[in-house]
């Protein structure tokens, strides 16, 4: 009978109308500013720099510039610290990320050999200052390892274990280098 399909459709919308009052599977809206979604541990927004202990001295970043090179939209800008004689130090003097350009792709996190840059979960970064407010400098980017543990407990624990193992290996190597045995392989550890 013509018109039956329309009636079937009307039945379906009526079911959804009433279902939205009692079935949470149908009524999925979240009232955003009041209630927020629980983000999964893997959720990512923008990068931040991890430090251990001191917010300036404790930065893990050695300003190797790999992330700057690999960043697809080229939103990272790094200038290494120099000592008095002009020699480059393994520490960033300037580390800027333009969040208005950053697309949160996590490539910088993946390529970082020192686990120094990680993805944040802070997504409410709106600002009234379009230019200054969206450029995050070194002090704004630096966040403690405890914070990292807080947002990504599993990943941060794994990273800590890995770093500890690395440190132990380094120490063992250093001990080996101090001993008279020649350690030619140590030069390979030099970072670009």
């Amino acid at each position: 009978m013509p018109g039956f399909g329309i009636i079937k459709g009307l039945k379906e919308t009526a079911r959804n109308f009433f279902g939205s009052y009692h079935d949470p599977g149908r009524f999925v809206t979240i009232q955003y500013p009041e209630e927020k979604r629980e983000h999964h541990e893997n959720y990512r927004s923008f990068p931040f720099l991890v430090y251990d202990g001191d917010p300036v001295k404790g930065l893990r970043c050695v300003s190797c510039k790999i992330c700057e090179k690999e960043c697809p939209p080229q939103c990272i800008y790094i200038v290494p610290e120099q000592d008095g004689s002009g020699k480059l130090l393994k520490f960033p003097r300037i580390f800027d990320i333009d969040v208005s350009v950053c697309m949160g792709c996590q490539i910088c996190v993946e390529v970082c050999p020192f686990d120094s840059i990680k993805m944040d979960q802070e997504f409410e970064v709106s600002t009234a200052d379009r230019f200054g407010g969206l450029i995050l400098n070194r002090s704004k980017l630096a966040k403690s390892n405890e914070y990292y543990h807080q947002i990504r407990p599993a990943e941060a624990t794994a990273v800590d274990a890995q770093l500890a193992a690395e440190r132990e290996r380094q120490q063992a190597k250093a001990a080996a280098a101090k001993s008279p045995a020649p350690a030619a392989a140590a030069t390979r550890e030099k970072k670009p």
């Binding site: 013509p2 039956f4 399909g5 079937k8 459709g9 379906e12």
Partner: peptide, 8 residues
């Protein structure tokens, strides 16, 4: 149910 049989 909503769409495929709908005459319109």
């Amino acid at each position: 149910a909503l769409l495929t049989g709908n005459e319109i």
